[in-house]
């Protein structure tokens, strides 16, 4: 596999996952507004923080109204993490690899883009729920085509690696924002919103019948082995995909070995950790630490793709 192709596949996987996460997050935040009534916090502050919108953009785009916030997070082409920007990037990546993926996959992404590019904040605010529903359907279609038609070759493993590193990091990032805003006083409503933003409420109920507390929620979202949006689950899959990609390669380069070590270690840690340890060491510092490991893994994966700097070995 060529580095350039691998990089596009990896980012395609990441962007499509990011779009889904963003859509879920905005959807839930939008419908949580009622809970914020009478509080000091601007209802949108947490959301903007989760997205990590750069300050320059916030100065240019005041987030004083619902439609301005939607404009920025969903439709702004200046903001590289808005849903439309992620979609444009995903489409560009898909276009660069369109001969490598099923044609239906490219058509699904292109169709998604063609619909989304004509949408506006004003129009979507008439029915925000059905708007986000449509985005979720589009990403589900994308996942479904991969699942049912894509060869389980290198392309698939790379695409999935992008998806899972993005997912692992995303879950941690949401938790961090919510918990640091509210310190330890995260209430039932916050927990509920959080779970809903990862479509996890129903799944949580199946695993846990005891009352929803922050500890149980963190355990579920980070350490659960079978919830597909938990960090541990995502890392387990990332680890497996990387193994399949590079396992056969005995003379793996140092960069590959490093990526394998980092993901293996992080997954093992989450697999054997217990929730009291996390609480003891401090939730926030734990989350910050794990987010930074995710970033390191992401960067390390990218160095694999940069074949131009690989010194040439005898073959």
């Amino acid at each position: 596999m060529i580095g350039r192709i691998a990089e596009s596949l990896y980012w395609l996987g990441r962007y499509m996952e990011r779009i889904e996460n963003h859509a879920r997050l905005i959807d839930v935040a939008y419908h949580m507004q009622a809970n914020h009534m009478g509080q000091d916090l601007h209802p949108w502050t947490e959301l903007i923080d989760t997205f990590g919108v750069p300050n320059e953009l916030l100065l240019k785009n005041p987030i004083d109204s619902e439609s301005n916030v939607m404009q920025l997070l969903v439709f702004s082409r200046d903001y590289s993490n808005s849903i439309i920007s992620c979609l444009v990037s995903a489409r560009n990546d898909a276009q660069s690899v369109r001969e490598r993926v099923p044609s239906e996959l490219w058509e699904a992404i292109n169709g998604f883009y063609l619909w989304m590019k004509d949408e506006t904040a004003q129009a979507m605010l008439h029915y925000p729920h059905s708007f986000f529903q449509k985005i979720k359907e589009q990403t589900a279609l994308y996942q479904g085509i991969i699942e049912s038609t894509m060869l389980r070759g290198q392309e698939w493993h790379i695409l999935e690696s992008g998806k899972y590193i993005e997912r692992a990091e995303n879950t941690l990032r949401i938790l961090k924002v919510i918990i640091s805003e509210h310190k330890r006083t995260v209430d039932f409503d916050n927990c509920l919103a959080l779970l809903k933003s990862v479509s996890g409420f129903e799944a949580y109920r199946k695993c846990q019948t005891s009352p929803l507390t922050i500890e149980r929620m963190i355990e579920f979202m980070i350490l659960n082995a079978i919830f597909p949006r938990s960090t541990r689950f995502a890392l387990n899959h990332l680890n497996n995909h990387l193994h399949s990609l590079f396992h056969a390669n005995i003379a793996a380069s140092k960069t590959i070995q490093r990526v394998m070590r980092l993901t293996g270690r992080m997954h093992a840690q989450l697999a054997y950790m217990e929730i009291p340890e996390i609480i003891e060491s401090g939730i926030i510092s734990f989350l910050i630490e794990e987010i930074s490991v995710c970033n390191t893994i992401g960067q390390a994966i990218e160095t694999i793709f940069n074949t131009k700097e690989v010194s040439v070995l005898p073959f």
Partner: peptide, 10 residues
């Protein structure tokens, strides 16, 4: 002429 691949093989 070689194609550069991510596994380091040409």
């Amino acid at each position: 002429v070689y194609l550069q691949t991510i596994s380091g093989r040409m």
